[in-house]
Design a protein around this nucleic acid. Structure first.
Lengths: 247, 247
DNA sequence: TATAACGCTTGATATTTATCATGAATGTTT
DNA sequence: AAACATTCATGATAAATATCAAGCGTTATA
């Protein structure tokens, strides 16, 4: 729950002029629907680096869309371990983890200063009743999240560490490409520690796998700067989902 | 897509008299809503053991609720590997994997002869418009699926093999308890091979972990018959989500 | 500028888990 | 009942990865 003094809320520029409309809520809403919709997304939330957007147990008050910055979601165990569930960037939606019983089950923290558009749940239910397009968009977004989880489970359950990293880099590359950025040169938005946790390996192992990819001249890495030198080589290291096959 | 000659469809007994109404769609619908709803779930689908309900790439035609039997969902990779995504039992809903772009992204196969209630997507959209309770139930169900995925990611990403198995047994125990069965004695609905794959380990390792749990006198296993001898001991081996903590 | 703290890398070693190989128990077909 | 295929368990070994330890840049702080 956002209660921090550092937060600020202010009125938002319209969705129809947002440069993220192709990947965010507006995608799939008609012009009429969109004007109804954007009147309900009347606030933005700003949070600073390391500040939490919500924590496990907080009541679900809103669904958020990231406008700028990045958010890490994670789970904590009673042993003090944690598992990063995802790194979320502009255009991504947050809050579905609270749908089951109106409380968040995961934690969300800003990886850098971040701006989010807030859709309060009180408006949400009403909007779903009157906007068929929003129901459709919600199903697509939720389905997308489920598919990403499936993919992550496959990665963690079946792949070795090198392949996990290759797969991650390819996904990130795609992610940037869809948003109009270079798919071969980009910055990792997270430190090694978080990425290793997300990929289910020790930070030292991640380091070694980066070194291995560099030695193969598939990518070059300098701190957080990634440069994909051989896309086909990288694809060859990853064996993501089969388009045709049976079990 | 269900096209097999072995399938049969027939009219379904009403949801209001179904013994699964507490865990399935009806949970959350008012009496009025339920009568509208059950007119749209007008068919059951029967599939035999090892028969597929849908495959990756199939158009999303329906959402299914399992009435009897059990279904395994899984992903396949281009290397011929597969990853089991879940074992689904009576009261569970199937088909959310197709929400993102109206095509299934995973595969679903019957682990035994199975009966499902079918809700065609053509009815679904309309029902969502007129039944607020259904929208709420859908959100809860989808949220539940997302939370289960989070939990699975934590299991695969952070836990060692013994803890993965302990956690799985506890979840299964809960599952049966909610449905009115014994939480200490039950049968595993899946072979070792599938369970090992689901838990991201080799079948031999799973076997050894069962043996380890038996030696600790925490559970006894005979083929597929599980008997939890020491629930607290089992809980002690699993460190699922923390109710209080920070990262 | 010095110093500390952090993020990252690399080497040596220990641990965990996979793989390979075998055999027992159970279930199925003839 | 015999022959066969499945399923599962267990031992021996190999491979992958975690852990421990040290060191090196970079960034932050005094």
């Amino acid at each position: 729950m956002v209660m921090n003094i550092k937060n600020s809320r202010e009125s938002v520029n319209s969705c129809s002029h947002c440069n993220l409309k192709k990947v965010c809520f507006p995608h799939g809403l008609s012009a009429d629907e969109l004007s109804t919709f954007e009147n309900s997304v009347d606030k933005t939330v700003k949070i600073q680096k390391k500040e939490k957007l919500f924590s496990r147990g907080d009541p679900l008050t809103s669904v958020y869309a990231i406008k700028a910055g990045s958010i890490k979601t994670y789970l904590s165990t009673s042993k003090g371990q944690s598992q990063v569930l995802g790194f979320h960037m502009p255009g991504d939606l947050l809050g579905f983890d609270g749908f089951a019983d109106d409380r968040h089950t995961s934690n969300a923290v800003a990886m850098e200063d971040t701006i989010l558009c807030e859709l309060p749940m009180s408006n949400f239910e009403n909007l779903c009743e009157i906007l068929p397009g929003l129901r459709k968009v919600m199903m697509q977004q939720v389905g997308g999240e489920i598919n990403r989880h499936h993919s992550l489970v496959l990665t963690l359950g079946q792949m070795q560490t090198e392949e996990r990293l290759a797969t991650f880099l390819l996904r990130l590359s795609c992610y940037y490409q869809v948003r109009g950025f270079s798919c071969t040169q980009f910055n990792l938005p997270m430190p090694r520690h978080d990425l290793a946790n997300f990929l289910g390996m020790a930070p030292e192992t991640l380091s070694r796998m980066f070194a291995k990819l560099e030695k193969q001249k598939v990518v070059s890495i300098k701190r957080r700067e990634v440069n994909i030198l051989d896309m086909d080589g990288l694809l060859g290291l990853s064996h993501e989902i089969c388009t045709h096959a049976e079990v």
